[in-house]
Design a protein around this nucleic acid. Structure first.
Length: 567
RNA sequence: UGUCGGGUCGUCUAAUGGCAGGACAACGCCCUUUGGAGGCGUCUGUAGAGGUUCGAAUCCUCUCCCGACAGCCA
């Protein structure tokens, strides 16, 4: 189907949110004072140790969005300073996800590992200035010497080594003369600082590990604090935007740059995204994958970008969500409903409508002629007349949704029940005259109805009104399909507030294999998105095969009836 | 009893000394051949106590609450 192209063709610069936030105000001020020569250059700096999630999407939209709105640039930079955790697979997934979200780093794809030589030189400079030293303390000892949150630390016995000695030792660390963990290079700042990050932080550790890009060239690797700011500086970043947990690191970020006397970007911290009924840390998402709670990083129940994509989310809906949640410094947890609402909004305007019956109930129209097939006209999208219409085969034997029949209808139930009338969407008004039950189970297996030939949709006499309209498919023409219905992965609103795995929802996936869908769907291709009328938005899953279609329910339609029934 | 940061409708976010506003949710009504979509309307908030001021969510003082930080992770 050709809806795919139209769904994804317009890129992120189509919409102009321009929502004010404190970062934009800071940039406005910097522009006014010419702080960075009137330039705006940001970067998105993921570590390739997992898949991107919706929280990263917020950061991507922020960084690339700022660059777009201020006519600046945004780099993609992999923060790959820990070879024991990072993998090429993650690099590829991250690039795919950023691109899919609609952003373009053009020729500015960088890696912190591109700068390892330069970073080493910078370290040498600090050593020469007496601002860094090689320390022989092991990890436990360093912790002991660091002190606590309320007590100052004490100086390392190696703190007073001469620059020459340090230079020699650091060179030999690099040469591989010392075993893993035996020595570190540390910044020489202040062991009594109330900010723990300033108590002689480790700049380099010895790690005999193969790096996904530099291979075995290095056996010493820079720490985040030493790599990040200098990488920003090398790339001439102006505004280095990160999340709140790096706030306490800003003094160290500034210290390094000042000591080196190089281009000094402004670090700005904002509050990370949290969403109700889910978790948002790579570590936890990894655990869900590794322990088999989900089928993979792209499981449609995951809050990963790849999961949302597979679920049927559009880049536009995710960008709209990022815009809606805003950017601030206050800790926040956004309502999971917002994400769904953004998808509905987007797909309502663009997704073709289609008839699909998830839980089929056979319905025979007794007074409809045998063997006759009518071609009825169905509107593809009432929001968008340009999307045209299609033909729907109608005949004597149909399937309707089991939910659309109640033997004993509750108050305000507008659908079928014995003796009641209802309109079949785009077809006729029918009346239920008999109910056939299974002798064995007593369950309703078939409905016998009559139709009123005067009430054909669109005909002059069709002005007759009934309260309810239900969807249907013609039994002889319908094709079989599987539908995967997803519910939230966690039943607790704030899974992190307790033992997060305790609230994993055991029924977050329901698979329906006997769905009946209208024949026009036969030519759908993976990622195509549709509205199954009255049910929700569905996308064709990658697992689909010719003649064995699998649909993911991305989100239900708003269900007013469900609400009424509940109360 | 450390340092840094944060507390505005249920939620997210504006108001930068001058009418506390918007969105979502909720509720009510209208419309509807999707109980969808749409339209109209209603409700709800400045953590607390003092102070400065003609005027304070905003500035000052104190109190309370929440978060981050003691990896050779990022």
């Amino acid at each position: 189907m050709e809806n795919k192209k139209s769904l994804e063709s317009d890129k992120a610069n189509a919409e102009i949110p321009e929502r004010k936030n404190f970062i934009r105000e800071m940039i406005d001020e910097d522009l006014k004072t010419k702080k960075f020569a009137g330039k705006v250059h940001t970067r998105f700096p993921p570590e390739p140790n997992g898949y991107l999630h919706i929280g990263h999407a917020k950061s991507i939209c922020l960084n690339f969005g700022l660059a777009r709105d201020y006519h600046g640039l945004c780099n993609l930079r992999f923060d790959d300073t820990n070879p024991t955790k990072e993998e090429q697979e993650y690099v590829e997934s991250i690039m795919r996800d950023v691109r899919w979200l609609g952003f373009d780093w053009e020729d500015r794809l960088f890696y912190a590992s591109d700068y390892f030589d330069q970073l080493y030189e910078y370290a040498v400079q600090l050593i020469k200035k007496g601002k860094a030293y090689v320390c022989d303390l092991n990890a436990d000892q360093i912790r002991d010497y660091r002190g606590t949150l309320t007590e100052p630390g004490k100086d390392s016995p190696y703190r007073m080594r001469t620059a020459d000695e340090n230079l020699n030792l650091f060179q030999r660390m690099r040469n591989g003369e010392f075993p893993n963990g035996s020595r570190t290079l540390r910044a020489r700042i202040d062991m009594k600082s109330p900010n723990l990050n300033l108590r002689d932080p480790v700049m380099y550790r010895i790690l005999f590990a193969t790096h996904h890009r530099t291979g075995d060239k290095w056996c010493i690797y820079p720490m985040y604090d030493w790599a990040h700011g200098q990488s920003d500086s090398i790339e001439r970043i102006t505004h280095s935007i990160c999340t709140l947990e790096f706030e306490n690191h800003r003094r160290l970020y500034d210290w390094c740059l000042e000591e080196l006397g190089i281009h000094h970007p402004q670090q700005i911290e904002f509050a990370r995204l949290n969403i109700t009924y889910t978790v948002m840390s790579k570590r936890k998402l990894l655990e869900l994958v590794e322990e088999g709670h989900v089928k993979g990083w792209d499981d449609p129940r995951m809050p990963t970008i790849s999961g949302l994509r597979r679920r049927g989310y559009t880049p536009e809906s995710i960008r709209a969500f990022a815009d809606r949640v805003g950017v601030a410094r206050r800790e926040n947890t956004s309502d999971a409903l917002w994400l769904e609402e953004c998808l509905r909004n987007d797909l309502n305007k663009r997704a073709p409508r289609v008839m699909a019956v998830l839980r089929p109930l056979k319905l025979v129209i007794e007074n409809y002629p045998d063997g006759t097939v009518e071609e009825l006209e169905g509107v593809n999208n009432p929001e968008e007349p340009a999307m045209g219409s299609r033909k729907l085969p109608f005949s004597k034997v149909l399937y309707i949704e089991q939910d659309d029949f109640r033997e004993v209808p509750p108050k305000k139930y507008f659908r079928l029940s014995p003796g009641a009338e209802v309109r079949l969407r785009y077809a006729y008004i029918i009346k239920c005259v008999d109910v056939v039950k299974s002798a064995a189970t007593g369950e309703v297996v078939e409905l016998r109805c009559t139709y009123d030939p005067e009430t054909k949709s669109g005909s002059t006499q069709s002005a007759r009104k009934v309260k309810g309209t239900i969807h249907w498919v013609s039994a002889a023409h319908a094709i079989n399909a599987e539908a995967r219905l997803y519910d939230r992965l966690f039943s607790a609103e704030y899974p992190d507030r307790e033992n997060w795995k305790d609230s994993i929802n055991p029924s977050s996936l329901e698979v329906l294999r006997e769905c009946k869908i209208e024949p026009s769907l036969a030519k759908a291709t993976p990622q195509d998105r549709f509205q199954f009328e009255r049910l929700g938005y569905f996308s064709l899953d990658d697992d689909s095969k010719e003649g064995a279609l699998v649909f993911n329910r991305a989100v239900t339609l708003r269900d007013t009836w469900a609400k009424i029934e509940k109360s």
